[in-house]
Amino acid sequence: MNDLSEISYGLEVLRRVWNSWDRSTLSDEQSVVGDRVLNSANLDRLIDSLYFFCACADGDALNQWQGYAGDRGFSIEIDTAAHLAPLDTSGQGDAGGLFMHVVPGWYRVIYDPAEQERLVRKVLDFALSGGGYRDGRPLDSGHLETFLGTVIAQFKHPSFNAEREVRFIALRRGPDLPERFRSGRSGVIPYVELVCPPGEGRHLVSYPGQDPPGPLPLKSLTCGPADAAEAALIASAASRLMEAHGYDVRVHRSRVPYRFFRI
């Protein structure tokens, strides 16, 4: 899904660090490069082009059942070693080009503000010092935007640290990659469809003209907290559902002793 608030939070951290930078330590050229990147419209475009597939490092966490799954919810374990890619059904091929300002993949979310600022400073210091130069010239601004975009896409407000979130970060491949919408508790939610690209390659985008996508990388399924009388029925139905769709995965019952009260 495309979460505007989280991407905006990362951009705020990035610009706060740059605005507090001691410019006396930089050459005029370095200051210009930094200002150009930090004020780049490309970084602002991340708000419309970046998508998060959010998960939790704990598959049976009380706060996740309470905050997201609700009564009789399910937790699906994902194999993060498997590669995912947005499905492009536009038929446009590579005509739109690839907007590359984040390295797609799985990342652990960073909540600590001090760690967030440290990482931003590390990337900026590398890019604007000798490490960020090639043949005596500074890195292309596109490379710096990609480093910074990948870092800030991992940031989240510290008040959410109990969620222990991990996320797959994906990019919308320009305006030609179809964007979908679904309703949610917060309103209309934009998203892109992720699939497992066929073969061994780590494709950034999967096209219908390729071989059919592989099955989703599911490892197990946990049924949420429920009364003992219902838990067995729920687990049995969930097992049959997985089998009907071709998934040979383990089905567990939640170990959380929590009851949802219906009003």
Rank of each mutant, 00 (worst) to 15 (best):
M1R: 05
N2D: 10
D3V: 10
S5A: 14
E6H: 13
S8W: 00
V13N: 03
R16F: 00
D22P: 04
D22K: 05
L26C: 05
S31D: 10
V32K: 15
R36F: 10
V37W: 03
N39D: 14
N39F: 05
A41V: 14
D44I: 14
D44Y: 10
D48C: 01
L50R: 06
L50H: 03
C56V: 02
A57N: 14
W65I: 00
Q66P: 00
D71I: 05
I76P: 01
D79N: 15
A82W: 02
S90H: 07
G91T: 15
A95C: 07
L98G: 06
M100F: 07
M100V: 07
P104C: 10
G105V: 04
I110Q: 00
A114D: 14
E117K: 05
R118P: 03
L119M: 14
V123M: 05
D125Q: 06
S129H: 04
Y133R: 15
Y133F: 13
G142P: 01
H143C: 09
L144R: 02
T146M: 14
V151C: 02
A153F: 01
Q154A: 05
S159Q: 09
F160H: 08
E165G: 02
G174W: 07
D176F: 13
C196R: 13
P197D: 15
G199V: 11
R202P: 01
P215D: 03
P215Q: 04
P217G: 09
L221D: 02
T222C: 09
C223P: 08
G224F: 04
G224Q: 07
A228H: 15
E230Y: 10
A231D: 14
L233Y: 04
I234A: 01
A237K: 08
A238T: 13
S239D: 10
L241T: 10
L241D: 02
E243N: 07
E243H: 12
H252S: 08
R253S: 06
R262M: 10
R262L: 11
